[in-house]
Amino acid sequence: MIDVQRLRVWQAVVASGSVHAAARHLGYTPSTVSQHVKLLARETGLVLATRVGRGIEPTAAGLRLAEEGSEVISSLGRLDHVVSDLRDGRTDHLSIACFASVAQTWVPEVAERLRHELPGVVLEVSISEPHGGRGRRAPDLEVASEAPDEAGSTGAAFVRHDLGLDPFVVALPVGHRLASADEVRVAELADETWIDNVVYDSPTLRILVEACRAAGFQPQFAARCDDHQATLGLVAAGLGITGLPSLAAHRLPDGVVAVPLVDPVPQRRIVANQRHLTAHTRASAVALEALQQLATQVRE
């Protein structure tokens, strides 16, 4: 069995670029680091590094071992987290993975419900990030968005709960010609300057672009920002307009108004994927019920 501490030391050598640098970062002597590396090479039967001048250079096998070892160390980090909770008397926890607008608008109310009904529960929230980092728990609930016409693809480890549809609005500066309208036809925005609030390909961006294409034009983006709140700040500054789900427009900065979009009505489906292994827990049930009730408010 591979010694985990030696694996950690080897990862430090690869990340630091040298034995001496790794020794400084870890608080070890260079000879101690070198000894860990030699023992790890003996354990694995691999050539981890080759001598280059007065230093070493990781081999392809050494780099692969350092990379693959991250998953093992992350798993041990999660186990450390569990042990810490048990030692401190915290025997229940809930991990939620979600996108930013859910974290800002729904998670505080979910947390309040949990605090009221299960005062000892430990809540962990991951926003727009994959789970698997050191100490991070696998999600008990994943809140995700998808296009309404997409076939849901929940993995075998989860049970899917449809929370409903979230229609889009257009965010406009207060002085915009359409700012006082009750609703805006998508075609009326064909000549506008747009600001992308996603940057990376996502269901939200695809839904908006498809709505524009259905109205006969391709949106022209003058700026891209990977945060919808920062994007709304750019709208307030007059750099352009943006289209986003109504949940993401829950908190508008001064100088911005949100108007519903029609013809067509772009909308996303919000789903909650509940992990089978923890679905029986009271924490998971309470959080799911809270999410379902909050989603009902969006539809009303």
Rank of each mutant, 00 (worst) to 15 (best):
T44A: 02
V184F: 00
T154F: 14
V184D: 00
I127M: 04
E109N: 06
A61R: 07
S180C: 14
L234G: 03
L48H: 05
P203D: 08
R24A: 08
A248Y: 01
A237I: 10
G77L: 00
L48Y: 07
R113T: 09
P173V: 14
R275S: 04
D226M: 08
A181L: 13
V235R: 00
L288F: 11
G133F: 15
S34F: 06
T231A: 08
R64M: 09
S128V: 10
A249H: 00
A187V: 15
R8H: 08
I207W: 03
A283S: 13
A156Y: 08
R134Y: 13
R206E: 09
I195W: 02
A230N: 15
V37Y: 00
V209A: 07
R115E: 07
I195K: 03
I56P: 02
G62V: 13
R134H: 14
A223L: 10
R134M: 13
P219M: 09
D140W: 02
V143W: 11
Q220K: 12
D80A: 13
Q293P: 04
P266H: 06
V83F: 08
A103P: 05
L163D: 07
E210G: 06
T296D: 10
P260A: 08
L46W: 05
Y28M: 13
W10R: 02
D140F: 01
V125H: 03
A290W: 05
S34L: 12
A157I: 06
D166L: 04
A171K: 00
P148K: 04
V121N: 04
S74A: 11
Q292T: 15
E210V: 10
D254R: 09
G89P: 03
V262A: 11
A272V: 08
G62F: 07
E146M: 15
Q293S: 14
A49L: 09
V9D: 00
V107Q: 03
A211H: 03
R78C: 08
P266Y: 06
